[in-house]
Simulated scan of single mutants.
Amino acid sequence: MPTFPSKPYRPQTTVMNSWNARAKRSPVLFFGLPFILTMVGASFGLSQLTQTRYDHRDMHHRKVAKEEALGMEKNRRQFSLQEEYWRLQAKSDEDDDWEQVRVERPPGVEQ
Rank of each mutant, 00 (worst) to 15 (best):
M1E: 09
P2L: 12
P2R: 12
F4M: 08
F4S: 11
F4C: 10
F4T: 08
S6P: 03
P8D: 04
Y9A: 05
R10W: 13
P11K: 10
P11Y: 00
P11G: 02
Q12V: 12
M16T: 05
W19L: 15
N20W: 05
A23E: 10
P27Y: 05
V28N: 09
V28E: 07
F30S: 15
F31A: 13
F31P: 01
F31N: 08
G32E: 07
P34H: 15
F35S: 15
M39T: 09
M39S: 03
A42R: 07
S43A: 11
G45P: 05
Q48E: 09
Q51A: 11
Q51P: 04
Q51L: 09
T52D: 09
H56A: 08
R57Y: 11
D58R: 03
D58A: 14
H60Y: 10
V64L: 15
A65C: 02
A65G: 01
E67H: 02
E68W: 06
E68R: 06
E68Y: 11
G71F: 01
G71D: 03
M72Q: 08
K74R: 15
R76M: 13
R77W: 01
L81P: 12
E83R: 13
Y85S: 15
Y85P: 00
W86I: 10
W86K: 13
L88P: 01
A90D: 08
K91D: 06
S92I: 05
S92G: 03
S92V: 03
D93Y: 09
D93T: 09
E94I: 05
D95K: 11
D95G: 06
W98I: 06
E99A: 07
Q100T: 03
Q100D: 02
V103P: 00
R105V: 01
G108F: 00
